[in-house]
Nucleic acid binder design. Structure first.
Length: 518
RNA sequence: CGGGGCGUGGCGCAGCCUGGUAGCGCGCACGGUUCGGGACCGUGAGGCCGGAGGUUCGAAUCCUCUCGCCCCGACCA
């Protein structure tokens, strides 16, 4: 056992340079490109198909929980944003603002905004829509009989971020934002929890991505919210990624927007509202949860195509027979249902060498690869390659049984990916009992070129913001006060035990989750 | 927004210090040999050297400004 390490399709590898590996996977899997505009991206068909599948799954879950889609304007009057004090403060620093409605020839050529066409009130390109949807809700809601109001919109938003990364943090991104109004606090809190649970289910069942779900600390709250809940996932560099949020907004936005209703007893009351969202950031999470040194690895339920098939053609004599066999195979696969959908098949007939096709589909993460050549027709069998197995490994199946067998394998892959990600997270989740241990856990050996280190640390915290801040010294923060999803970790049983704050020694009712975060 | 790095054919890079109008590998096109495999040989296409000013007889190379990307930090629903 010696010699050079096997060549990988992605260079550098995760261990060599995780950040660069991520960039390379996004590009080589053909998910997205940088756009000519700073911080913006072009989502390419393979990446956009992932988003469409995400939308389809989530949209179904939103509908199933009683929500309806609507669409609100991209532009928000500046005065709307000013209505909720904390909200303004949270978003003012990163707003794109529209001030003119016409261009004219400039003094030195080109076009400039026409000074005569300045808007009376500047419009903000929505960073989120609480305020403008709140204004609509105020009109829609009169009586308790109008509640609950359960609305979702699929939209783009703009946040002028200082530092951007494809999918993870872009200036413009795609998302869904749910906005609901309720007659009682309890109902709104229930909604907040319900939608967080929808996100958790989606992450686990569709993305095969284990998440920890629970409330954020005050410091990490959405501007204007009473309480923010989130799902957090561990990426392969062991950092936490916030993958979805659900906010209990109390009556803050109802007061700001005047969402009032007459209750059954005749009294006038402010509604209780919530908002919740996930974005194209999920695709970044997908890359960093399952990707390997050969590129993307897609969970079958979200994959734009479940199977890639291509012919091995040696001479013209075989050609017609092989292509015919592929045609038959593809037809059978496309008639097969799996996970509530018919299978998507990419038949790759491009005039490209077999190995090149193979590696392209590996990089793109397609779950199953099948090559069909003359020899297969002779034997009546084909080799089926799983993306989650070494690239030379093959399942050998009778050709006519492929369609009948793929479902089982796809289901197995879906399960295995979740199990593998869960095992990874558990392996790097620890319970720690003093500040020194915590700091050591989050400190790389090589400060110059930090290796992959750290993970999730469950530690006691008194609840004070000063102590919370102490973790910032070694770049960790409290991600979530765990409620759900960490049950499998060896350290899990220690979450609910009482203890002493690792920083000040004050009493702590339970452990919280510390991690470095995206 | 502060510190650092980088922008040269589709991708990865060399050339820049010591100015003289562009080179390598991969990819691409064509021909041939191979052929269940990340092949090989030959021929060829493709670059206003991120952009704008400036210095100079002459700028990818020097100076100024600007745009973008990456890393670290601050910030981040």
């Amino acid at each position: 056992m010696s010699g050079p390490p096997p060549r990988t399709a992605i260079e550098p590898t995760r261990a060599e340079d995780y950040a660069e590996w991520y960039q390379q996977v996004v590009r080589q899997a053909d998910l997205a490109d940088h756009a000519p505009v700073r911080g913006c991206m072009i989502i390419k068909p393979w990446g956009y198909a992932l988003w469409e599948n995400t939308q389809r799954a989530l949209d179904g879950m939103f509908k199933a929980t009683g929500h309806r889609n609507a669409y609100f304007p991209l532009f928000i009057p500046l005065s709307f944003l000013e209505k909720e004090a904390e909200h303004v403060e949270g978003f003012a620093k990163e707003c794109a603002v529209v001030t003119h409605h016409r261009l004219v020839a400039g003094p030195e050529g080109g076009l400039v905004p026409d000074p005569e066409a300045r808007l009376a009130e500047p419009l903000v390109v929505r960073p989120t829509s609480e305020t403008i949807i709140g204004a609509a809700f105020a009109q829609w809601v009169q009586s308790y009989r109008d509640l609950p109001l359960l609305i979702n919109q699929w939209a783009n938003v703009v946040r002028w971020e200082m530092r951007t990364r494809l999918f993870l943090r872009t200036a413009e991104f795609l998302w869904q934002e749910g906005h609901t109004a309720h007659a009682t606090e309890a109902e709104a809190r229930e909604e907040t929890a319900r939608m967080l649970d929808v996100y958790r289910t989606f992450a686990e069942q569709w993305m095969a991505m284990p998440v920890v779900a629970g409330p954020k600390t005050d410091a990490e709250r959405f501007p204007g919210a009473v309480e923010t809940h989130a799902i957090e996932a561990m990426m392969q560099d062991r950092k936490a990624l916030q993958a979805g949020t659900s906010h209990f907004l109390g009556q803050n936005f109802a007061r700001a927007s005047g969402i009032r209703f007459q209750a059954a007893d005749g009294s006038e009351q402010y509604a209780w509202t919530t908002s919740w969202g996930v974005s194209t950031r999920l695709l970044g999470a997908l890359v960093m949860t399952h990707g390997d040194d050969d590129g993307l690895v897609l969970p079958p339920r979200l994959a734009p195509a479940h199977v890639a098939v291509w012919p091995v053609l040696r001479d013209d004599a075989d050609r017609a027979r092989v292509l015919e066999a592929i045609e038959v195979l593809a037809r059978a696969l496309r008639a097969t249902r799996w996970a509530d959908r018919t299978l998507e098949v990419e038949v790759d007939l491009r005039d490209v060498r077999g190995p090149d096709k193979q590696w392209e589909w590996i990089r793109k993460g397609v779950p199953l690869r099948i090559e069909v050549g003359p020899r297969d027709l002779q034997s009546g069998t084909v080799g089926v390659a799983r993306r989650d197995r070494p690239h030379r490994e093959r399942l050998v199946w009778p050709l006519h049984e492929v369609a009948a067998r793929v479902g089982e394998v796809l289901s197995d892959m879906q399960t295995q990916l979740l199990q593998k990600a869960l095992a990874f997270r558990d392996a790097y989740t620890v319970a720690l009992d003093d500040a020194g241990e915590l700091e050591a856990f989050f400190t790389p050996r090589d400060a110059q070129r930090p290796e992959i280190h750290g993970g999730f640390a469950l530690a006691h915290w008194c609840g004070g913001s000063a102590c919370e801040q102490r973790a910032h010294a070694f770049k960790a923060s409290i991600r979530v006060v765990p409620v759900h999803g960490i049950a499998a970790a060896r350290a899990a049983e220690r979450i609910e035990e009482r203890g002493r704050c690792v920083f000040c020694g004050g009493p702590s009712p339970r452990r919280v989750l510390f991690a470095k975060a995206y």
